[in-house]
Amino acid sequence: MTVPRGYGALMIGLVALVLVLMAVSLVVGPATITPLEALRALFHDDGAATLVMREIRLPRTLLAAMIGGTLGICGAALQSFLRNPLADSGVLGIGATAALGAVVAIYTGLAAAFPLALPLFALVGAVLSVLVVLALGGSAGTTTLILAGIAVSSLAAALTSLALNLSPSPYAALEIVFWLLGSLSDRSMLHVQLAAPFMIVGWVLIAGLGRPLDALTLGHDTAASLGFRMSRVSLLLVLGTASCVGAATAVAGSISFVGLVVPHMLRPLVGGKASRLLPASWLGGASLLLAADLTARLVSPAKDLKLGVVTALVGAPFFLALVLKSRGRLA
C-alpha cells in the first residue's frame, strides 16, 4: 500500500477550490449586486436580490458543480475500467446519445406533460450507447473502442440534428447548438430537482466500484481471482454512468472534454489508484466546469457563449497531446 502523503492535502485543496469557485460563481452576474449583498441575500430574504440569488444563480452554480463532478467521476471510472486513457463519456458517445434521448422527450412535448420523461429518456439513450460501445469495442484494444465511440457519437449527433430539423417548432433547429455544446444559462431549481436524484444514484453506484477498479489495474484475471465479478462491475458502471451523464445532459446539453482531461491531471497526484481517483476527479470536474462556466459568463456576458466551446478550447489541445503521446505506444 503506497499511500501518497499528499492525498489528504490534495482532497482538502480540491474541496476548497470547489467552494471558492462556487462562491465566485454566485457573485458574478448581469444584475448589479455587490458580492456581500449577494451572499447575504442568499440566506436572508431581501426581495428581488434574493430571487436572483436563490432562483437564478444558485441553481446555475449547483448544476455546474454537479455536472462537472459527474463528468469527472465518470471519466475516471471509464478510463480505469477500460484501461484506456482516451475513454470518457463524451468520446464514447454517451453524452451524444443522452442528448438524443432528451431531444426526443422535449420536442415531442412529452417532457412538458411528464417532467420525469426528460431524465428518463436521456438515461435510456445513455444506457443504449454504453451497451453498444462495450459490445463493439469493450474487449478489443484502445483504437477499436474509440472508433466505436466516435461512430455512436456521430450517429447520435446526426439523429439529434435530424430530429430538431424535422421538429415543427421554428426555434428547434437553432437549439442544435445547445444540445451539442451545452449551456447552463437560466437553469432553475426545477432542473436541479429533476437531475439531482439520478446524479446521486449514479455517483453512489460508481463510487462503490473503487476497490474492484483498483484490482482491475492488475488485469482482468487477477481481479477475478480476487473475487470481483467483472460482469457485475460492468453492469454497475453502465447504470451508474448512464444515470448521472443522462441527467446531466438532459438539463445542460452535452459538455465534452471535462471527463477526459480531469482524471489525467489528477492521476499522478493520487498515485494512480482508482479508488482515490474517483472522488478526486469528482472535485476536479466540478472545479473545471465551474471555472469554464465563469469564463463563459465573464468573456461575453451578453452573448450566451456555450459551455462546450470553453471546455473544448481547453480540452481539445489536451486531447491532441494525449493522442500524440499514445501514438508511439499504438504503432
Binding site: I33, A48, I56, I106, G109, A111, S169, D186
Partner: peptide
C-alpha cells in the same frame, strides 16, 4: 438577462403566446 428582469420588477412580460408554440427550449 433573466436577472435584470427580476431586479427591475416589470409590470408585465410582453412576448409570444406560449400556448401557440410547438415544444422547444426557446
Amino acid at each position: 438577462p433573466l436577472e435584470l428582469i427580476v431586479m427591475n420588477h416589470p409590470d408585465a412580460l410582453i412576448g409570444n403566446n406560449q400556448k401557440e408554440e410547438e415544444p422547444s427550449l426557446a
